[in-house]
Structures are given as C-alpha cells and as structure tokens.
C-alpha cells in the first residue's frame, strides 16, 4: 500500500474518545478509500497491542489515556533512517509493516494511574517485553518547554501564523533518560495529565533538563548536544569563509 498520511494519531485519538478528523481534502476519493483501509488495518493492529498492554498492568492499575507519537509529527531522531530500520518476526508485525508502510516510526506513551509505559509499536508487537516503564514516583522533575515556530508554508504567506510544540525531558531516579519532541496536542495532553492524575502531582515542571549525574548534563542532554553541534557547525563555516576570503585577498594582492 502506498505511503499516505500516517493514520496513527487519528486512530489513537479515537481510542481516547476524541471525534474523528476528516481525511485531508487534497486526497482524491480513491486515495481517501486507501487511507481508510490503512486506518482500519491500524485500528485492528492496535487492538492487539492494547490486549498485550493489559497483560502488563498490575492489580487495580488503570489506563488513563494514550499519547501517540510519529516520525511525521514528532522527532525522527532515533526512529527514522538507519535508526528506524527493523526486521519483523511475527505474522502480525509483518502485516503491520505491509499495511502501514511503517517500521519504528510509531511510538505510544500510555498513562496509567501509576506510571508511564512507553514503547515503539512494532517492537512491542513482536516482543511484549520491549517497553519502558517510568513510575511517577521515580520522576522528580521534568522539562516541558514550549516553543513556537513561524510557519513557512505557502498557505500562510504574509500572515503571522506560528506552530506550537514542546520539548519533553526527564530522568528517573534509576537514571533512565527520556527526551522527546511533542506536538502542541501532545503537550496539552501531557499538561492535562500532570494536573489530573493524582500520582503526577508531585512532579516539578520547568524549562531546564535536570540530571542525577553532572556528566549527563553534557553527554546525555539532547538540547545541549544540539546547541554544541550548532555552534561548532557555525564556527567551522565561519572559519572556512574567513579562510576563503583571506585567500582571495592574498591572490588579489599578489
């Protein structure tokens, strides 16, 4: 099946009880039908995933809601390109790969009344032990920083239209670090959960990442790494430019 808009967010939102979003208007009727088939196939796969999730829950533990993340809407830093490659094992996973044209791109964060369960969908389908569990007690503080980007698409030329997004970063007391780029909707759901889930009430929310080990501020801090990469890149470019201009001037003088 051809790659169209990823229906993962739509499907998870329907599980969260939100009304459906219409298919993109630019799609023809045939493409809309293809998109619909892809959506139904994903819905069936996600039912199997949710059945697996219920096996992980403890006595009396309850699911509150789910936060979908994709390469298209969130970051593809660790789940796209070479990092996004995966070889499915089971028939269900092969069906997921073929029907969704997707490998490690779709991720799911499940909020229960006790913890956050996070997994990459295709890995979790193959192996129910491939997930991360972050209990609320082990999270002391999080970074949930909002950012706004000015739009650069043709639809909003000449208008002051901005897109909101959030950076999420936290480290648990047993030193698991989680960093992700959230969409505006993801960020709002996360904030809603911080306010409404009793187990999350003690978590401090700020604009700075906090680490247990000081070295992790340098080596396990995506924001810092990005800034270093940016400045080093800028420095190398500036040095090359200055060297080129100096060479040109020297050539002129001789």
């Amino acid at each position: 099946m051809a790659i169209l808009t990823n229906p993962f967010i739509n499907v998870i939102n329907s599980y969260n009880g939100l009304p459906e979003q219409p298919a993109p208007a630019y799609l023809s009727d045939e493409l809309k039908q293809l998109f619909r088939k892809r959506e139904v196939a994903l819905y069936i796969s996600m039912r199997q995933v949710l059945d697996q999730v219920t096996q992980l829950l403890g006595d009396g533990e309850k699911i509150i809601n789910m936060l979908p993340m994709t390469n298209e809407a969130n970051s593809g830093y660790a789940t796209d390109g070479i990092m996004g490659m995966y070889a499915p094992d089971s028939e269900a996973t092969k069906w997921y790969r073929d029907s969704q044209s997707s490998l490690r791109g779709n991720r799911l964060m499940i909020f229960t009344d006790r913890r956050i369960i996070f997994f990459i969908v295709i890995e979790f389908m193959d192996d129910p032990n491939q997930y991360f569990s972050y209990s609320y007690e082990s999270i002391k503080s999080i970074k949930l920083k909002s950012k706004y980007f000015r739009s650069a698409d043709l639809e909003h030329v000449g208008k002051t239209h901005t897109y909101g997004s959030y950076t999420l970063d936290f480290e648990t007391t047993d030193r698991h670090i989680f960093t992700e780029f959230l969409t505006k909707e993801n960020g709002e759901l996360f904030k809603q959960n911080l306010l409404t889930i009793p187990g999350m009430q003690h978590i401090e929310v700020g604009n700075k990442a906090s680490r247990v080990n000081r070295l992790d501020y340098i080596f396990s801090n995506f924001s810092f790494s990005f800034k270093v990469f940016l400045w080093v890149g800028f420095g190398i470019t500036a040095w090359c430019f200055i060297a080129a201009v100096a060479t040109w001037i020297m050539t002129l003088l001789h």
Binding site: Y15, L18, L50, T54, G60, E61, K62, I63, D113
Partner: peptide, 16 residues
Amino acid sequence: LKGTFQDLDLAADYLA
C-alpha cells in the same frame, strides 16, 4: 459508551 474504553472488550478492571 463513546469516549470511554468500556466497549473495547478490554477487561473493565484495567480501565479508569
């Protein structure tokens, strides 16, 4: 039942 998980055939014990 819309907007809840109660009609998903998941055991009700797991749903908030």
